[in-house]
Each structure stands twice: as structure tokens, then as C-alpha cells.
Amino acid sequence: MSFEPGRAETTKVAAAEEHAHPGTRTYLRIALILTVLTAAEVAVIHIPALEAVMVPVLLVLTVAKFSLVVMYYMHLKFDSRIFTGVFVAPLTLAVGVIISLILLFKVLPKYNPW
């Protein structure tokens, strides 16, 4: 890793933000929700009745877990929106890459008239 927090760049700002960050109780609650969501994910693939909606349900649960970690553990919910911006813009492109490659390789060939 080429990044190391600087010495003279102290954390005055981070310290000033500290009170805005959630406390231990919130962190524990999020951990509990994450555990429940993971259990739900594993349960979904084992319940035959849910087979038809398995993919969307799993995707929703995954996005929920992803968002919880990013918003609470990585503090994006509480921090400056600049951090959200420099992360979410590339993240959107990454999701776009995944979706468009799946479309191009898996979905569109089925609709090819010749």
C-alpha cells in the first residue's frame, strides 16, 4: 500500500467529526442486522418456494448489507458528501460494467434475430 496517514497532518478534523460518528451501540446493532441478513441469504437458497424470486431477493439483501457497511462502518452517512462522491461515481461505473457485460454476453445473444 502506498498510502499512509501523514504525521503532521493530524486528525483535528477527524476528531472534530468524531462526535458525529455513531457509537458502540449502533455498531453492535448493525452487526446484528448484518448477521440476520446473511442468515436470510443462506435461507433463501434453501427454500424451494422462493426459487422464482431467489435472484432479486438475494440481490436486494446483498445491496442492503453493502449499504449498511458503507454508510455506518465507513461513516459515509455521517461524513462529508465529497467522500460519497469520489466513491459512488466510480462504483456506479463498476456496477454499470458488470450489468452491461452480463447483458452483452448472456442476454442480448438470445434476442439476436439472425
Partner: peptide
């Protein structure tokens, strides 16, 4: 275009 992605793409 020349590799044949199909008309939609």
C-alpha cells in the same frame, strides 16, 4: 461493430 455483436448492441 465488425465482430458481430448483433443489431441491438
Amino acid at each position: 461493430f465488425a465482430v458481430g455483436m448483433g443489431p441491438i448492441a
